[in-house]
Design a protein around this nucleic acid. Sequence first.
RNA 1: CGGAGCGUAGCGCAGCUUGGUUAGCGCGCCUGCUUUGGGAGCAGGAGGUCGCCAGUUCGAAUCUGGCCGCUCCGACCA
Length: 476
Amino acid sequence: MEEITPQGEDFSRWYLDVVQKAQLADYAPVRGCVAVRPYGFAIWEAMQSNLDERFKATGVENAYFPLLIPESIFKKEAEHIEGFAPEAPWVTHAGEEELSEKLVIRPSSETIIGTMFSRWIQSYRDLPMVLNQWCSVVRWEKATYPFIRTSEFLWQEGHTCHRDENDARKRARMMVGVYRDFLQEELAVPVIDGIKSEREKFAGAVDTFTVEALMGDGRGLQAGTSHYLGDGFARVMDIKFLDEDGEHKLVHQTSWGVSHRLIGAVIMVHGDDRGLRLPPKIAPKQAVIVPIYRQDSRSEVLQQANRLQQELAEARISVHLDDREGYTPGWKFNDWEMRGVPIRLELGPRDMEDEQVVLVRRDTGDKESVSWSGLAQKTTDVLDDISENMFKQALDFREKNTRAVDEMSQLKEIISGPRGYVLAGWCGDAGCEAQVKEKTGATIQCIPFDEAKYSEQACLCCGSESGRTVVFARPY
RNA sequence: CGGAGCGUAGCGCAGCUUGGUUAGCGCGCCUGCUUUGGGAGCAGGAGGUCGCCAGUUCGAAUCUGGCCGCUCCGACCA
């Protein structure tokens, strides 16, 4: 197996190495597209099922809408089309025959779903309507990067209709909270939740809420967004309901999504020079058993390994017995470490005598002997501890790489040097925001919800006292 | 979309400057034997339209032009 480029030497190369060598994805013969391999897809499936459960607990129903959207419908909302038109791919022909109306391959489904909403919603009793679809979308990106920005990507998009602004805003805020909890509790990725500036918000949204995470190279990543759409889409797509008072009214909408970009986030937040480190709650395999034997002890060791595997499986631990022939134990150790499996259990002749295994943690590298009798409980406990520790390590990293400044020159120095998050004041003016980006390369990741922690501060651009602290970073 | 680099076996590369035997090497892969507590050893074997298209030439992996793809930096990006 080949080496992985060390993070310190070239982080980007390291990331690409991990993606390929841990067999998460591979380049496909389509510009900017990857094939997600079984191991990478298993991570996505784990994220998917966990999120889906969280969605449903808040009343979300799943549905499915067409991949193709007629031009006339796609173009109904001006800001939306302006945002997406440059990267929209079109279907113009069926066979040799030109279509009477061209069809865009969805970059997001507000317009097509809105069209269906207008037929399905008649009365205030039909509200709220809270739907979600798991699908892929296409955006013809100029610069692509596996998982983080690809031309086609897997995601979920939630779309909801509400009776009034307050109800819709509550839903949009609720979903950004679901994303925050999911990232922190399941992916062990600490986030800052907040609102996007006018410049950074979604095309067609009134407000965009976001969860932001800091990657291992000090660049910021938008990990999930939730939008309050107002009644703009409702107006152009005629989504109206008859209210209690006998008046026809426009619905207020939200949309929200996370994508397989989250896989990229997990890689870049937790990975190290040995490769991937997967948070236990979304690891396709939480533990792997590596048997060690000589010819004469082979069947004995394998038999015991099988017994242990079964016991762990009964304790609802996802466990894999690596009984491949022709690979040495040392090779397997390295292989599973590269692929990020949280716990390795070694079972060899010495362990057979003492009725124990050697348990090795991927997060710390710590080894200890554990008796067979207490193995399932011990493994469960260690998995929980790994989850906590990985979150703590990521949070420590973020705190060490978050710096507060008052002046643009300091921001510039940090962004061109160690990077990380930079806390600075901003007055809310788009001109100041543009100037900061121009001069430093940093953009506003978000204006944090937490006003106590991120309070008033003079604008680092114009000096206005009316500013408050926001989070700057060099973004992905 | 601009600047730079790369494209030869699954992966990493040599060969190209100065055109000319059957295009090599390492890793991986297949078979067999010996091995197995941190990336095993030996022996044998399979695997190539040299990114694509055109041109120059008796002859092109090698020279020329165009195109495509990937990587890095920048621009753009909800």
